[in-house]
Amino acid sequence: MSAEQQEMLSSLAEIVERVAGVPAERVLPEKSFTDDLALDSLAVVEVAFSMQEHTGIDIPEEDLARIRTVQDFLDLVEHSAERN
Score class of each variant (00 low, 15 high):
33 F>Q: 01
35 D>N: 10
6 Q>M: 10
31 K>Y: 00
83 R>P: 00
46 E>R: 10
3 A>T: 13
51 M>H: 00
18 R>C: 05
49 F>H: 15
64 L>R: 00
79 H>T: 14
47 V>C: 08
37 L>C: 05
60 P>G: 06
82 E>Q: 07
80 S>L: 04
47 V>N: 07
74 L>P: 01
76 L>Q: 07
65 A>Y: 11
33 F>K: 00
82 E>I: 10
33 F>D: 04
84 N>F: 12
62 E>T: 06
67 I>Q: 01
2 S>G: 12
59 I>D: 01
13 A>K: 10
1 M>C: 03
5 Q>W: 03
25 E>D: 14
14 E>Q: 12
49 F>A: 15
26 R>D: 15
10 S>K: 14
27 V>N: 04
12 L>I: 07
18 R>G: 08
35 D>I: 00
16 V>L: 08
56 G>L: 09
32 S>E: 04
52 Q>S: 13
65 A>P: 01
54 H>D: 11
50 S>Q: 15
16 V>M: 06
55 T>R: 03
36 D>I: 02
46 E>W: 02
45 V>F: 11
75 D>M: 09
38 A>N: 11
66 R>G: 09
39 L>T: 04
43 A>L: 12
37 L>E: 14
36 D>V: 03
43 A>H: 13
60 P>W: 05
12 L>V: 09
15 I>R: 01
36 D>N: 01
71 Q>A: 12
28 L>R: 09
74 L>C: 03
21 G>T: 07
10 S>F: 13
14 E>A: 12
32 S>T: 12
52 Q>V: 10
79 H>S: 14
27 V>G: 07
1 M>D: 02
15 I>L: 06
1 M>A: 09
76 L>E: 02
13 A>P: 13
36 D>M: 01
41 S>F: 02
33 F>E: 04
16 V>W: 04
45 V>H: 02
45 V>D: 02
75 D>T: 12
34 T>Y: 07
12 L>G: 05
43 A>M: 14
13 A>L: 14
58 D>F: 14
80 S>D: 03
60 P>A: 08
65 A>E: 15
43 A>E: 15
9 L>F: 09
13 A>F: 13
68 R>K: 12
81 A>W: 04
16 V>G: 05
73 F>W: 05
60 P>D: 09
26 R>Y: 08
80 S>I: 05
26 R>M: 15
58 D>G: 10
13 A>V: 15
1 M>P: 09
77 V>T: 15
43 A>Q: 15
6 Q>I: 03
27 V>Q: 03
9 L>N: 01
29 P>W: 04
52 Q>K: 10
65 A>G: 05
68 R>I: 08
6 Q>K: 14
55 T>Q: 01
79 H>Q: 13
54 H>I: 00
12 L>Y: 08
72 D>L: 08
81 A>Q: 13
1 M>Y: 05
44 V>F: 02
5 Q>G: 04
15 I>T: 08
